[in-house]
């Protein structure tokens, strides 16, 4: 049983707690400038998009990265379309998994 990432959990807590506490513990704090607020609003979409895209488009072997096209693209695109259409993440994930299973049974990768 590994405990290696427990300190990382503590580090993530240390990075998250101040944001959660700053207003509640220091109500007099001035609000952030508008430009900073606008930037923060965009961090979520950018980080999540980067994670998804890198995960399905880049494969790393022996320290070298290569662009890949494969079945996971279809799964992710289907998930995006369904979440956009139905506002239901679980439906999107179910479709993504179903496409991956079906595609692999059909010999696609």
């Amino acid at each position: 049983m590994s405990f290696e990432l427990v300190p990382l959990a503590v580090l993530m807590f240390a990075m998250t707690y101040p944001s959660r506490a700053i207003g509640l513990l220091n109500p007099a704090l001035e609000r952030l400038p508008g430009r900073a607020l606008a930037y923060l609003q965009l961090v979520g979409p950018a980080v999540l998009a980067a994670l998804a895209a890198v995960n399905v488009m880049v494969a790393t072997t022996d320290g070298r990265s290569a662009f890949v096209i494969g079945l996971p693209w279809l799964s992710v695109v289907a998930c995006i379309a369904i979440v956009r259409w139905r506002q239901n993440l679980f439906l999107g994930l179910a479709a993504a998994v179903a496409i991956a299973i079906g595609g692999r049974l059909a010999g696609l990768h």
């Binding site: 999540l48 998804a52 995960n55 996971p72 799964s75 998930c79 979440v83 994930l93």
Partner: peptide, 14 residues
Amino acid sequence: GIDVIFPAAMAGLM
């Protein structure tokens, strides 16, 4: 198909 859950979840959350 569990390997596609992570990128699909990231994209869906996005």
